[in-house]
Amino acid sequence: MKLNAIALTTAAFTVLALGFAPNAKADCSEATLKGHFAYTSIGPIVANAPASILGPSAEVGVQYFDGRGGVSFKYNASTNGSIGPGTGTGAYTVSDDCTGTFTETSEGFTSHFSFVIDENGVGFQGICQDTGVVVTRSGRRQFLGGDWK
């Protein structure tokens, strides 16, 4: 009889605790991505771009989100075998469900990405949304002092 009473008490406590457990809800904003993020982008550019950049593409760099919707980039890229550094600027938005978009404009060319924030703002995973581009991006927060632009 004691065992049944303990089991019932445990079951009742579990049901009660689960009933009061808060629902998981993301609560993201532009401020969630404030800071420097080391990133890697990789994938082919297959159409709708200047012939000089059609082909395999890879890029590593630092992406700085200002916490208010502005973003800047410093990178080194290999585009169809042509290697070199670059910089860019853009804008970003974040929805409260931790998804968002950003643009990257560099040398007169603008790319559009969709992304999702992961690990409470420690990183993000993105994909280019431009026709003819099959590029993904993965970024992780850096802990740098100072600002660059």
Rank of each mutant, 00 (worst) to 15 (best):
K2S: 11
K2Q: 14
N4Q: 13
I6Q: 10
I6F: 09
A7R: 07
L8V: 13
T9V: 08
T10L: 13
A11T: 14
F13Y: 11
F13W: 06
T14C: 12
L16Y: 09
L18S: 12
L18N: 13
L18R: 01
G19E: 02
F20H: 08
P22D: 05
P22F: 05
P22T: 12
N23Q: 12
N23L: 15
N23W: 03
A24W: 01
A26K: 12
A26N: 12
A26Q: 11
C28F: 11
A31C: 03
L33G: 01
K34E: 14
K34V: 09
H36M: 04
Y39V: 09
S41Y: 00
I45E: 00
N48W: 02
P50G: 07
S52K: 11
S57R: 03
E59R: 12
G61R: 04
V62K: 05
V62W: 00
V62I: 15
V62G: 02
Q63G: 01
F65N: 04
F65M: 10
D66G: 07
D66A: 05
G67L: 11
G70F: 07
G70H: 12
G70T: 12
V71Y: 05
S72T: 14
S72N: 10
Y75W: 03
Y75I: 04
A77F: 01
A77L: 12
T79L: 15
S82H: 11
G86W: 04
G88M: 04
T89Y: 05
G90F: 00
A91V: 11
Y92M: 10
T93C: 02
V94H: 02
S95P: 00
S95N: 15
D96A: 14
D97M: 09
D97W: 08
D97G: 07
D97L: 10
T99E: 02
G100F: 02
E104D: 11
T105A: 13
T105P: 08
E107W: 06
F109V: 15
F113L: 06
V116E: 07
I117N: 03
I117W: 01
D118M: 07
N120Y: 10
G121D: 03
V122N: 12
G123I: 05
F124Y: 14
F124V: 00
Q125I: 11
G126L: 02
I127T: 14
C128D: 13
C128F: 00
Q129R: 13
D130P: 06
D130N: 15
G132P: 05
G132C: 07
V133P: 00
V134S: 12
V134K: 09
V135G: 02
V135D: 02
R141D: 06
R141I: 13
F143P: 02
L144P: 01
L144A: 09
L144G: 06
D147H: 13
K149E: 13
K149Y: 10
